[in-house]
């Protein structure tokens, strides 16, 4: 799959700064149509910064980001996502004083209302728990429910590329499994392309077709999920002692 000519997303030499502090030091990576790609790395490596840079906030200082043939490096966030990118960001960012329903409606903000009921039924099928919570405020949901809602909200925009930032963070193993199963199902059944950022390297590499390793703002390794899982450096740094 990595031989494909036109990646859906291509990141080239991207450098991102917070003020004078460098967070990404020239990142290169691709995501092809139909793939699940993961970026693993320790806390503070720059994974979330990469996710947000793809969406234009913060903006890359150098380098280029091309999505579906369009250079999105300098586009404002709301235009980038209107091209079919959806993100479930770090910390989930559920609107706390909106109901589950309203959060989902926000997800569908750019979509023709005619699809709403159909899409709603789809995400409820994926996460039946959300349906029970439909009129509950986002801020009162449990962590697992918020994560499901964040993914469901992203799906409501009918994305071609789904960006997931640490969906497993702080969740019980059973919920993590539910969420990862849902991601796999979306990819296999709907052909949804997924870019997943994780500290939980074991699960992420097992799920993903390909993976990258990020260290201190640089991509240091790449390969198929299975290859990376076997690498000694990966095992030592991200798996040993942390096996799930």
């Amino acid at each position: 799959m990595s031989e494909q000519k036109n990646p859906l997303l291509s990141v080239r030499g991207v450098e991102t700064y917070y003020g004078n502090i460098v967070a990404l030091r020239g990142v290169d990576m691709d995501v092809h149509r139909g793939e699940i790609v993961t970026m693993i790395g320790a806390n503070g490596a720059g994974k979330s910064t990469l996710m947000m840079t793809i969406c234009g906030d913060p903006r890359a200082r150098n380098g280029q980001i091309v999505y579906d043939g369009v250079d999105i490096t300098q586009m404002p966030t709301h235009e980038i996502v209107s091209l079919g990118i959806a993100q479930s960001p770090e910390g989930r960012r559920i609107f706390p004083r909106m109901t589950v329903m309203e959060n989902l409606q926000m997800g569908a903000a750019l979509v023709d209302p005619e699809f709403f009921d159909e899409d709603l039924a789809k995400v409820f099928k994926l996460f039946p728990r959300l349906k029970e919570r439909i009129s509950q405020r986002g801020g009162t949901l449990s962590g697992g429910e918020q994560q499901m809602l964040a993914i469901a909200r992203a799906l409501m925009s009918r994305p071609k590329l789904l960006l997931l930032d640490e969906p497993s963070l702080g969740l019980a193993p059973l919920i993590v499994k539910q969420i990862f199963d849902a991601i796999r199902e979306l990819n296999e059944k709907e052909g949804l392309t997924v870019f997943l950022v994780e500290q939980n390297a074991f699960h992420a590499l097992k799920l993903a077709h390909r993976g990258y390793v990020m260290v201190n703002g640089n991509v240091t390794m790449s390969g198929t999920g299975a290859e990376l899982l076997k690498k000694e450096e990966v095992r030592a740094a991200y798996l040993e002692g942390g096996r799930h």
Partner: peptide
Amino acid sequence: SLGRAQRACEQDRKMAALLGINV
């Protein structure tokens, strides 16, 4: 939807932008 977008911007502007709202 306009009112919803306003409330979304009130609660989390960054997230509203990520959902396509012109903040």
